[in-house]
Amino acid sequence: MCLGIPGQIIEIIDEEKKIAKVDVSGVRRSINIACIVDEEHPCLSCVGDWVLIHVGFAMGRIDAEEAAKTMALLQELEEAQKEMEAMSRPPS
């Protein structure tokens, strides 16, 4: 359920109606960003932000730090795995 795709805001089209243009892998479209605009993030400051797009609305901002944390965890696991493999291989 709920197809959501990451895209980057590249331009604010209508500040009052909170319409911005996003880019998804070279495809651009106007979307509504009302759900990610608040006092801390005024409309114009959103350019460059990565957002999760669902049915023409930015439904959330993607947190780069949290993404990096998740990635780091997976990276650690991968490295541990590779070490294990290296250890279990007979010395040549």
């Binding site: 997976l74 696991l77 590779k82």
Partner: peptide
Amino acid sequence: MKYVDEFRDPEKAKSLFCEI
């Protein structure tokens, strides 16, 4: 695609499958 491709990395998947 940022935030998509890195989460489809087959190498990292291998280690997850092993852990699972």
